[in-house]
Design a protein around this nucleic acid. Sequence first.
DNA 1: CGCAGATTGTTGTGACGTACAACATAACCG
DNA 2: CGGTTATGTTGTACGTCACAACAATCTGCG
Lengths: 387, 387
Amino acid sequence: MFGEQGGRNDLVRRHNLALVLRRVHEAPATRSELTRVSGLNRSTIGALVAELVDRGLVVEDEAAGAGQVGRPSPLVRPSDAPIAVAVNPELDAVTVATVRLGGRVLAKERVTFDAPPTPEEAVRTAVDTARRLLAQHAGARLVGAGVAVPGIVRRVDGLVRLAPHLGWRDVPIAAMVGEALGVQAGAANDAGLGAQAEWVFGAGRGVDDLVYVHGGASGVGGGIVSGGVLIGGATGHAGELGHVGIRRGGSADTIGVRGTLESEVRRSALLEVLGLEAADPDELEAALIADRSAPVRAEVRRQLDALAVALASVINLLNPSRIVLGGFLSALTAATPGRLADVVATRALPLPDEPVDIRRAELGSDLLLIGAAELPFTRLFADPPPA
Amino acid sequence: MFGEQGGRNDLVRRHNLALVLRRVHEAPATRSELTRVSGLNRSTIGALVAELVDRGLVVEDEAAGAGQVGRPSPLVRPSDAPIAVAVNPELDAVTVATVRLGGRVLAKERVTFDAPPTPEEAVRTAVDTARRLLAQHAGARLVGAGVAVPGIVRRVDGLVRLAPHLGWRDVPIAAMVGEALGVQAGAANDAGLGAQAEWVFGAGRGVDDLVYVHGGASGVGGGIVSGGVLIGGATGHAGELGHVGIRRGGSADTIGVRGTLESEVRRSALLEVLGLEAADPDELEAALIADRSAPVRAEVRRQLDALAVALASVINLLNPSRIVLGGFLSALTAATPGRLADVVATRALPLPDEPVDIRRAELGSDLLLIGAAELPFTRLFADPPPA
DNA sequence: CGCAGATTGTTGTGACGTACAACATAACCG
DNA sequence: CGGTTATGTTGTACGTCACAACAATCTGCG
């Protein structure tokens, strides 16, 4: 419970504060609900909430009791004051947002680039934009920053090992952003953060064993939650679903390996058969549903079958109770409902009950920003500051 | 740290007792070592150890101080009294053992069967043998039982969902063994327990992110440790590495799926090209090294390449720092050293440093029994009994 | 409209577990 | 053989939570 460390009494307090704060972050709750889920005494919950109010992290609304017998229990909501800065550098833009507890995106700004942004450009854009966005809100208290990077990131210190599409290699992006903003910052793989966002606020709510798969323009990635914990791996690179092998031969993926999920399931191939140059997620989905020509349907089936093989491997390996598909993979399943689940079923272990629940992602374009904000928020929970 | 539960003060005590007991179980340690690794105060460690001694779970040896300056610290070792019963039903036999804390197998007996044992036969054999083995040791205190089953087992209640080779389906083996022996019992997949054993006592010592792959006569299985926790999955079926997909087509594996690791990497195929009827692990390895004919080398290479594809998928998905190969997979790598790592390297994400460390299992034929004993021992740590 | 019942917040007391400091013990070292 | 160092031991202090008694506020009923 304290890892390898021995537990001290004050750590219990820290843990319980974090427990309450995280629960309120996931969704507002009454004090009586907090009492029930935590198993703690009413008086203890009262003291914990009072301390969190003192620290400016949560607020209590008097309004609650809807038709309940008994004394009404105040609703505990996250405070509006603590704000995290979320940054998402991409091939052609840097998106910056301010995010409140509860995953509420307050303001968002996308700065476009002609060439991929350098680390320095990304940091400058992040800091300039963040300062402007923060200035709009008087009571705001900056608690940290998080960066969602399309590449391989070491989670412990937020070092970008390799981001092929940005041309970054061994860039300490978290340290750079943190120093420039004067707060602690974290960084992680974008798909992993998407997984975390969908887990906490989206299609993976309340599930302890979840796999999220994201189909982006530059490849396929994902994140794994097992036993209620986001799987990081030895150096924080876990979740690279795009490089799961599914066949011999075939074309090469972004790292030059043949026959992986990412080499077979590609957004560009869908656009090509559809005869489209570019398309946002909704347009792509509409086009896939509208165009029922043989080449399009064949390509969709080919990609769905490839996805199914990879998912079956993941299911047999990790036994998740739910799989969430985001990005263009969501549109892919919409075109031919049921097929994916059917093919997965033929390749997964035949477990009588509880078939894996495959769902589409619920969070839209804010996904990565919400996920990036979870980095500083998680740190906040682990060590709630005095004031 | 207490999961979703709020932490009470007495849970801190339970946690610290478990921490010390588990540490001593993994390897004997002096009190000063326990103080260092736990971060607890000397006086607290003293009290914890004294309580564990009272409960008959550990003993203190006066002997210690080897050339150290200062007052010598007593060595804390697991007591010999607590004993777990380990059971491993197989196709043609039921193996039963008594195991002490520290993973020390005390006595082992293998009862052979002509036909696969029924659940009732397995339980009867387990109980009869266990009682006889226990009677040999006066001071023994039976603390629980664990069953390693070659099949899909739900860990929470030890229900065998499906064990194709035994012909078992939905058999509550843990409850049956527990009731017959009059103690709490657990059950889990054999390969998963092998993973746990290698993690705690074998080639995976001290590593927090580990994948164990076991090649048995009936197929390929495994277990995953991530972040210092054995991954169970939603219903405890995680770790079925044998059913990871590696190619299209090919032959079918034990559950009828084509192109999986288990369908390509088979012990029987090795025996066939070697012209052997049967072979124990050492004989198989010797034969593979001795026979350098073209058909044998081709088959070895074919299987190694298939294994490499599956391992690369697992590496990209889970980012382990070490992979441990057990069963005939260990012999397979011995025949052509280096090749497996080379092929894996071409398919895994190109991370500059820290290449995955692929090792052979260290625990021999006691592997599954040591793993099975971990089930009751883990329960013992979570809730140390009064006396 | 008022009262009974139910549920929850509030407050004060007690129990439990660890940290800390002072002292005791036992090795090594010159 | 005394000084140094590291560790075990003991008694006190502090922090956290559970518990019980009481207060507050809702629903439901006549």
